[in-house]
């Protein structure tokens, strides 16, 4: 069941488009903002709200990299693995991060604190290497800076 809050937020979005279907990506993001991820049940509920089949909703959900169809940690680390960051040392950075957290890229730490996801160019190429934690962009990273950075996200 979508909560009243979620339904209301989705209703707001409907006003921006001539057809309800167009609000599907917003609806997915709204649910994800409230629950951290999008379950099969939520896919069905969004479909019901927008008059779409679950398959139609899922076809959109699975298209986007930032819609999570599995639970993620409290904080999501998106580490850029595209060209400028790669030149500037994103690989060792990612390896170090994975080792520090004790997980493979794509996985979540056992305590549910972090999920580590490599991602496409973050548009911060002149300040590479870069990553995002939740909504925050962090740039000009070094191995030394990483440890300090993680501390900020409990």
């Amino acid at each position: 069941m979508l909560t009243e809050q979620e339904q209301q937020a989705i209703g707001e979005e409907l006003r921006h488009y001539p057809q309800p279907r167009a609000a599907v990506s917003e609806a997915l993001k709204i649910v994800q903002r409230h629950r951290g991820w999008v379950s099969d049940e939520s896919v069905r509920d969004i479909g019901a709200a927008l008059d779409l089949t679950p398959a139609e909703v899922d076809s959109v959900a699975t298209f986007y990299s930032m819609i999570f169809r599995r639970p993620v940690g409290r904080h999501v680390i998106l580490i850029c693995d595209s060209v400028s960051c790669w030149i500037m040392g994103a690989n060792p950075l990612q390896a170090h991060l994975a080792a520090t957290l004790g997980i493979q890229p794509g996985a979540t730490t056992a305590d549910g604190r972090f999920t580590l996801l490599p991602c496409a160019c973050l548009g911060a190429c002149d300040r590479a290497p870069a990553l995002m934690i939740d909504d925050d962009l962090h740039v000009d990273l070094t191995l030394e800076k990483l440890g300090e950075l993680l501390e900020k996200y409990a």
């Binding site: 595209s82 060209v83 400028s84 496409a120 160019c121 548009g123 911060a124 190429c125 002149d126």
Partner: peptide, 11 residues
């Protein structure tokens, strides 16, 4: 959308 790797101008 600016997702072309190496591009950060629209930001």
């Amino acid at each position: 959308d600016e997702m072309e790797p190496g591009t950060m101008k629209d930001r």
